[in-house]
Amino acid sequence: MSSTVEDAGVEAPDEEKPVAQGRGHRPALVAACLAVLLLVLGGAGMLFRAHQLRTAPAAGNHALTDTEATSQVTGDVSATLGKVLSYTPQATDVTAQSARELLAGKAAKQYTALFGQVGKRAKEQKLTLTTQVVRAGVTRLTGRQARLLVFLDQTAQRKGKPAGAVAAQLSVTAELRGGTWLITDITAR
Rank of each mutant, 00 (worst) to 15 (best):
M1A: 13
S2N: 14
V5R: 12
E6N: 10
E6T: 10
D7G: 08
A8H: 14
G9L: 11
G9K: 10
P13H: 14
P13W: 14
D14N: 14
D14L: 11
D14W: 06
E15A: 13
G22P: 03
G24E: 15
G24K: 15
H25E: 13
P27I: 07
C33H: 02
C33R: 10
L34A: 13
V36K: 10
L37C: 12
L37R: 06
L41P: 03
G43A: 12
A44I: 05
L47K: 04
F48T: 13
F48A: 14
R49F: 00
R49P: 07
H51Y: 01
Q52T: 05
Q52P: 09
A59M: 00
A59Q: 00
G60M: 00
G60N: 01
N61E: 05
N61R: 04
A63P: 06
A63S: 15
L64V: 05
L64I: 04
L64T: 07
D66A: 08
D66W: 02
T67E: 11
S78C: 03
K83V: 05
V84W: 02
L85H: 02
Y87R: 02
Y87P: 03
T88N: 06
P89I: 14
P89F: 08
T95V: 06
A96P: 05
A96H: 01
Q97A: 14
Q97F: 03
S98E: 09
A99K: 01
A99I: 03
L102S: 03
L102K: 04
K106Y: 02
K106W: 00
A107D: 05
Q110M: 05
Y111R: 00
T112W: 01
A113N: 07
L114Y: 14
F115Y: 11
F115T: 01
F115W: 05
G116I: 04
V118W: 04
A122K: 00
K123M: 11
E124H: 03
Q125S: 11
T128M: 08
L129Y: 01
T130A: 07
V134K: 13
V134C: 03
G137K: 12
V138L: 08
T139Q: 15
R140C: 01
T142M: 06
T142R: 12
G143D: 06
R144C: 03
Q145Y: 11
Q145T: 15
Q145L: 09
A146M: 06
R147W: 08
L149F: 08
V150N: 02
T155C: 05
Q157H: 13
R158G: 01
G160A: 09
V172A: 08
A174R: 04
A174W: 07
R177M: 12
G179A: 03
L182A: 04
I183F: 12
I183G: 04
I183K: 02
T184Y: 01
D185V: 02
I186C: 03
T187S: 11
T187V: 11
